[in-house]
Every structure is written in structure tokens, then in C-alpha cells.
Design a protein around this nucleic acid. Structure first.
Length: 610
DNA sequence: TTAGGGTTAG
């Protein structure tokens, strides 16, 4: 009798997330000696701890158990999944076989979920095979999780074949399938499946919208969101709100983002951790780092994503010291950094030339936090060395890191050689790049200019041929500017654009004023085999200049001009915009493919290295 | 005891 009472109470604590009461029950169970004799009680305790977010307690109890059954394993897997530690589930999984147990449908479902959330496709496929050979192969819940796994791993056709094998389809597996299509860009199939559903719920719409966001199909994501709004669907849900805020972040659509923020406030979701994290990131990515920090400061609870978002945001906006100081606050607050936090931190160091600090953070990441650095971490460290002129350390790192350096890595090193005038290393690096066969036209230009600088004309002509043969053309450069009511986009060198004559005259005026102040166009960002005048003409039409000039003509004097560019800003435009900020006394913020540049009084927050 | 939708880098 007593036994059933405890089971019931534990299930209640698990369901309503009452950790304190759950712990008390545990103590009571031990006290009256029920603990050792009931497997079922132990399994329910693990489940309760997992659902209450107390993974360590769940794990401790699990480790202490003398005998475990399938339910014990399934509960501990679910506890890890709930704590967002799917990799741990997969590490534990093989140990289950050592207990002499073979997975049932509960274990299959939780292990497949772990594969889905950690992108472990190979293990997922193995588990799928085991499932098909098992007596549970008709279980629809496991099939639902398999659809989700293939969706998250980017294999919509595999997802579809599992989906087709489900006899009675419900909204859960259909949402997973819609997500599979949306996140790989198969828009029509996603819409068609959604249309087939008799009754839809918010999850289906969220699956579609967030799938589009993840795929970069941002305009469709916003369109669907607005349509769902018009249909009067209740949006009081943190999932859909954080997803659409994320779309605004990627679009750098500050005005739309502000509208969604007002909606969030209206619906009372400003306290949702996911939503406020997304808002912090959105404001940072929409170039309003001040508002991002305000939201961060106003948050009552903050997790590692909140801290990482603001640290990365600060680093990208060139506020490195603040980023590092926020990290200290985060550690004091008792949070543990993750891989993404360290990307932001090392990035911050590279922008103020804190070589030793960056090195020690990299070391701390490995030694103190047992995180394994990825190629991105090495790239950040490389940037730190390169930027600070530690070229030998940089070259050494590229040669010794446990990753095959790709074109971007070599190109970054080559660019640093150019920046610091090290021709000897430049040629050495260029030779490595030449063997690799550069694919990006801007790498070819960099290479060609390096060889031209060293008078190695044979290589120059080889590269010209290679560039002519490159099938992949460079993505056309464009910049957009949000003037409050509308967004206007400018493409490099285009002949027709709004206010063409006024922009042309203004840029001409700037050009003559800048030359008086000592400006010399830097044409090394253009291929060498052109006449000087033609090179200068090419630079003159770069999209960011058109957008900035338009901004000066169309916005209120004194307001901040915010421009978003799809590619990296070129060195000459960077110089020009510094001049423009000083001539016009305007603050100009440009988000390029990599980072933010805050131009003010003739200087840029990136300290001229990016 | 199991399954679907969300946030952070590059």
C-alpha cells in the first residue's frame, strides 16, 4: 500500500516538476527501508529527478543500483535527453548490453531521440537496423522518433520512408515530417503535407516556420508566421516566438524584430528563457548591441545560451573588454562555459590583441572544462596570432592542428602575411594554397597579388587561367539599409537603383574631399590585370558605399546608419566609410558576413583587422 | 518509463 502511495507521489512530482518534494520523498523512502527492495520505486525516482532537471541525482541513484531493468536504462537515457546531454545517452547505451539487456520500444525511442539531437546519424542508422530486426519493429512511437532523427540529420527521403510505414499517422509524426521537408528547402512538399492535415495545431506551424528558418528560407518563414497571425491562431507559445525572433536575427531586420518584440511583450513572454535569449541575439545581430545588453540585464534567470549570446554579441561589436568581463561574471554566477562561449571569448581576444589571454582561454577550455576544440576554435586562435603579428605561431598552428587546414584557413594566414608585409611566408603559404586548388575567386585574387608582389609571374598567369576557368562565380555583393519604414537593397555595380544621380553626386563629393584628406584608393582587392582607373571605378560602385550614401540622403541627421552586407567588406570600402563617418559626423554600423563595424569619427571598432 | 515544434559560433 505504502509502496503505491510513493509511486503515485513520485509521478506527481515528476509531472509537475516538484524537485524539493521529490527529494523529501526519496529521503523518506530510504528511512523506512523501502529503497533496496523496489526496482520500480528506484526507476520512478530516476524519472522524477530527470524530469525535475536533477540529472546528477538521477545518475547517482542509477549508479548505486545493484540491479537494473530496461525501465531503469530508459529512465536514465530520458534524464540525459531532458538535460540536453544526448551524447551522454549514446555513451551509456552500450553499457546496457553489459547488463544482459536488449532494447525495448522505450529504449529505442529514447536512444533514437539522442541520435537525433546530437546528429549521430551513423549510430542512428545502426539503431534503426536493430529496431527493424526486433519484435518492436511495428511501434509507431519509435517510428516517429526515427522520422525526427532523419529530419534533423538532413535526410528527408529516409524520413519519408519511415513516415510511410506508420499505419496511423498523428500530428506528432506529421510535424516531424513537415520539419524534414522545410529544413532542407523542399517547400512545396512541406506545404502539401500540411495541407493534407485535417486538423492542425501550433506545433505543425512551428515545425514549418522553424524548418524554414534553419534552412535560411527566412522570407517564407516570416510570410507563414504573418499568415498564421492573420488566421488568429493563438501565439502564446515560446517555441514559435523564439523561432521567428531568430528569423529576424538572420535577416538583420531590426524593424520587424522590434515589432515581434512588442508582440512578445503583449503576450507576456518576455520571461521565457528561450524567447529572451533569442531577443538578445536578435538585437545583437541587428546591430543594436545596447538594446541586446538591456534585455540581458533585465533577465531574471540566465543560462549558458544567454551568457554566450551576449559575450559573442559584444565580441562581434568590437567590445572585447566587456565580453571578457562578462565571462568573469558568468563564472562567478556558477555557469560552465561551452564550446560556443569559447569561440566568442577567443574572438574577443583577437580584437584587442590579447594573445596570452586568448592562449590561456584555449588551454582552460581543454584542461578545466574538458572541451575538445573544433576547427572553429583553431581558426579563432589563428586569427588572434595573425592579427597580432605572431605570424610564426600562426603558421605553426596551421601545420600542427589536428584538422586538415582548408582554403579559408590558408587564405586567412595569407591575408595576415599581406597585412604584416611578410612576403617570404606569404609565398610559402601561397604555394600550399596553389596545391590545394583554390575555389573561391577572392582567394585567387589574394594569391595572384601575392605572387605579383614577389614578381613570380609564371604563377600569376597560372592563376589568371584558373580564375577564368572557375565555374563557381562569386556571389553577387549586395548591401541593404533599413531606413525605418522600408529596406532598400543595393547590388554592386548595378546600373539602376533608387536616387542614382543624387548618390553618384554625393559619392563624387566625398571622393574629392577624401583625396584632399590623403585618401589613396587601395586597389589590391581587385585583380591586377586592369587599368588603374578601371579598378578604381569598380571599387566606386561597391554596394556598401551606395547604401551608406543612400542612408545619408534619406535618414535624419544624427541618427545611426545601419547597413547589412552579404559578403565581407573590402579594405578600400572600409577606409572610405571611415572617412565618410568623419566628413559627415555620422555613426555608421555595417554588419558584414563576419562581424560588425561601428564607424565613428574616422575610426572603426574592429581596429582595422577583420 | 518512450515520440513532434524553440535559443548560442562560423
Amino acid at each position: 500500500m505504502q509502496h503505491f502511495h510513493f509511486l503515485h507521489q513520485l509521478q506527481r512530482c515528476a509531472r509537475f516538476h516538484f524537485p524539493t518534494e521529490g527529494r523529501k520523498l526519496h529521503a523518506h523512502i530510504i528511512k523506512i527501508g523501502l529503497y533496496d527492495c523496489s526496482l520500480k520505486l528506484c526507476n520512478n525516482l530516476i524519472d522524477m529527478y530527470g524530469k525535475c532537471g536533477l540529472l546528477d541525482d538521477a545518475l547517482q541513484l542509477f549508479d548505486e543500483m545493484h540491479h537494473r531493468d530496461l525501465a531503469s536504462w530508459a529512465s536514465v537515457f530520458t534524464a540525459h535527453n531532458e538535460a540536453n546531454q544526448p551524447q551522454k545517452t549514446l555513451l551509456l547505451f552500450p553499457n546496457m548490453f553489459l547488463d544482459g539487456l536488449w532494447p525495448d520500444h522505450f529504449v529505442f525511442a529514447s536512444v533514437v531521440k539522442a541520435c537525433a539531437n546530437s546528429g549521430a546519424l551513423r549510430v542512428g542508422k545502426q539503431v534503426h537496423c536493430q529496431f527493424l530486426k526486433s519484435v518492436f519493429s511495428v511501434d509507431d512511437v519509435v517510428k516517429s522518433s526515427l522520422v525526427d532523427m532523419y529530419a534533423k540529420c538532413g535526410l528527408p527521403d529516409n524520413a519519408k520512408s519511415v513516415f510511410d510505414s506508420i499505419l496511423v499517422k498523428n500530428l506528432i509524426c506529421s510535424s516531424a515530417m513537415i520539419s524534414a521537408y522545410a529544413r532542407c528547402g523542399r517547400k512545396n512538399e512541406a506545404f502539401a503535407l500540411l495541407g493534407e492535415l485535417g486538423e492542425k495545431n501550433l506545433q505543425c506551424w512551428t515545425a514549418l516556420i522553424s524548418g524554414f528558418v534553419q534552412n535560411g528560407n527566412l522570407i517564407d518563414a516570416v510570410d507563414v508566421f504573418l499568415e498564421v497571425r492573420r488566421e488568429g491562431v493563438d501565439m502564446r507559445d515560446p517555441f514559435i516566438l523564439s523561432s521567428i525572433v531568430g528569423a529576424c536575427a538572420s535577416l538583420a531586420a531590426l524593424q520587424l524584430g522590434k515589432q515581434i518584440h512588442r508582440l512578445v511583450l503583449g503576450l507576456g513572454y518576455e520571461c521565457s528563457l528561450f524567447v529572451s535569449n533569442a531577443l538578445v541575439d536578435m538585437y545583437a545581430k541587428c546591430s543594436d548591441i545596447v538594446e541586446a545588453k538591456k534585455i540581458f540585464d533585465s533577465m531574471l534567470t540566465r543560462d549558458i545560451v544567454s551568457w554566450t549570446s551576449i559575450i559573442v554579441g559584444m565580441a562581434q561589436h568590437g567590445q572585447a573588454i566587456e565580453a571578457l568581463s562578462l565571462y568573469d561574471d558568468m563564472i562567478l554566477a556558477g555557469l560552465k562555459p561551452n564550446e560556443v562561449t569559447f569561440v566568442g571569448l577567443i574572438y574577443a581576444c583577437s580584437h584587442v590583441g590579447l594573445v596570452n589571454k586568448g592562449k590561456s582561454l584555449f588551454k582552460s577550455m581543454i584542461d578545466d572544462y574538458k572541451l575538445s576544440p573544433s576547427l572553429q576554435h583553431y581558426t579563432c586562435l589563428l586569427d588572434l596570432y595573425s592579427r597580432s603579428g605572431h605570424l610564426e605561431d600562426a603558421e605553426n598552428l596551421v601545420n600542427t592542428m589536428p584538422f586538415q587546414p582548408d582554403e579559408a584557413v590558408w587564405a586567412a594566414l595569407l591575408s595576415a602575411c599581406k597585412q604584416h608585409g611578410n612576403t617570404e611566408m606569404g609565398v610559402r603559404v601561397a604555394n600550399r594554397l596553389l596545391i590545394l586548388g583554390p575555389k573561391d575567386p577572392s582567394t585567387c585574387i589574394l594569391l595572384s597579388n601575392t605572387y605579383a608582389g614577389a614578381a613570380l609571374w609564371d604563377n600569376v598567369s597560372k592563376l589568371r587561367k584558373q580564375l577564368a576557368n572557375l565555374e563557381v562565380r562569386k556571389e553577387p555583393g549586395y548591401s541593404s539599409i533599413d531606413s525605418g519604414k522600408e529596406t532598400t537593397t543595393f547590388y554592386a555595380g548595378e546600373a539602376l537603383y533608387p536616387m542614382k544621380d543624387a548618390i553618384f553626386s554625393l559619392l563624387k563629393e566625398f571622393d574629392s574631399e577624401m583625396r584632399k584628406r590623403g585618401y589613396i584608393p587601395d586597389t589590391t582587392f581587385v585583380l591586377h590585370d586592369m587599368e588603374q582607373q578601371e579598378k578604381e571605378r569598380q571599387l566606386f560602385w561597391h554596394s556598401e558605399r551606395l547604401a551608406v550614401a543612400y542612408g545619408i540622403l534619406r535618414t535624419v541627421p544624427g541618427s545611426v546608419i545601419r547597413v547589412v552586407k552579404n559578403l565581407r567588406i573590402c579594405g578600400d570600402c572600409h577606409t572610405v566609410i571611415k572617412f565618410i563617418s568623419s566628413i559627415t559626423n555620422r555613426k555608421i554600423v555595417i554588419r558584414d558576413a563576419n562581424r560588425f563595424h561601428h564607424f565613428n569619427e574616422g575610426a572603426c571598432s574592429c581596429n582595422d583587422f577583420w
